[in-house]
Amino acid sequence: MTALADGAPVRRAGAGRRLSDLLWRRPGVLLALLLGPPLMWLGVVYLGSLFALLLQSFFSIDEFSGVIDRTPTLKTYGELLRPANLDIILRTVVMAALVTAASVVVAFPIAYYAARYAKGRGKALFYLGIMLPLWSSYLVKVYAWKLILAKEGIVGWGFESLGLGGVLNAFLAVPGIGGNSLSVSPTGTFLVFVYVWLPFMILPIQAALERVPGSLIEASGDLGATPGQTFRHVIWPLALPGVVAGSIFTFSLTLGDYIIPQIIGTSARFIGLAVYQYQGTAGNVPLAAAFAVVPIVIMGVYLAVARRMGAFDAL
């Protein structure tokens, strides 16, 4: 009989192979090697410092000497409830909610197109288009927007050229959202927030839609649903985990940002700016820490509500 197989039944092993053998026999060792360093980083450096921050929020500051009193107290949290501070929290939360809602509206069609229609080169171009703004400096983009939105900027010029200057001025005259020009109005802050965080909304929605087989959409139509009904009963529920993931980004990034409101908008303060100022110039670290807890609590509540409403059922 002629043998096609030949040679020793066991291949000889060098040191590298023996290490592979060990890891193959004991997958736990491999897992520990792979996960150990990042878990140390996350657990000790990140969570540790977060915990230290939280701890600070239970300290208080002596108003006269400016010395931190390390006896645990809820006094600093009480300070959050002062009208001026509540105002900051409310303004930030409303802005974050509006930015998130607007991001969903703008991102969804883009994500839907990318997930269901874009193919090959078109898809690559799409990714490039979404990611490209993230490559350039955040400050450059924000200052660019300041020029775009300035009184003599291209937006104002566009409105004037179309003979709609009056419309823009009437809009800017509305108290609460207007101002001297778009670049110093809350509307300007809102527009720049939406622009800057949009990629963080598009990508998760696109990823969620990418996982929806086309046959589900066809099946819905086959069962009598118009495209609108299909969107409501099939596409939206299945995209919801992506929408929630994206909104975590846009919401929490807006809650924590302290640069955009400084450069564009009125000088009204947002949480991020308050944290920055209290722990920096004012040296009131406990109040800064208490402010920093607010977004964490808000996100916790938001996720709990989203979960209860079934946003993660499709996961």
Partner: peptide, 19 residues
């Protein structure tokens, strides 16, 4: 369009709604 036709389909991948 499909939603105006009195036919129904059993899809190859069944296309059951996962949610």
């Amino acid at each position: 369009p499909p939603y105006r036709r009195a036919v129904n389909t059993v899809f190859q991948d069944y296309a059951l709604f996962p949610h």
